[in-house]
């Protein structure tokens, strides 16, 4: 009869075997698609927030502030996508932080 610690360890190991391994089986395709969708959403959301933030902080130049924001966002969105998708460990986190900062910049105008 294993002691309680060994039981917990075995149980945890079984959980890993049953959950992680099947996850890995579909990981290459589905997790990448999922990650791509998340990256696209975050990158687009960050871009939109950047346009709003620029428009808010440079409201004196009127509609042109939106144009300037759009010019920046169109350059940054593809870069965000590459960061989010290409940087395996911290890509999504970095994208989340960028998006949050951009949203904050919108709100704190």
């Amino acid at each position: 009869m294993p002691d309680i610690f060994t039981s917990v360890a075995l149980h945890y190991n079984n959980m890993r075997m049953s959950r992680i391994i099947p996850f890995k089986a579909w990981s290459p395709a589905y997790s990448r698609v999922l990650r791509l969708v998340i990256c696209m959403s975050l990158a687009w959301g960050s871009g939109a927030a950047i346009v709003q933030a620029v428009a808010l902080h440079f409201s004196s130049i009127g509609e042109n502030a939106y144009v300037a924001g759009q010019i920046m966002a169109c350059l940054l969105i593809p870069i965000f996508m590459i960061i989010g998708f290409g940087w395996h460990r911290y890509g999504l986190l970095a994208l989340g932080i960028i998006g949050t900062l951009a949203m904050l910049a919108c709100q704190l105008g």
Partner: peptide, 21 residues
């Protein structure tokens, strides 16, 4: 590609036309 995206960027990003025009 970049200039093409920018020309109609207002279609997918926030646009100031509604507010300013």
């Amino acid at each position: 590609t970049y200039t093409g995206v920018i020309i109609h960027a207002a279609a997918v990003l926030p646009d100031g036309a509604a507010i300013h025009r």
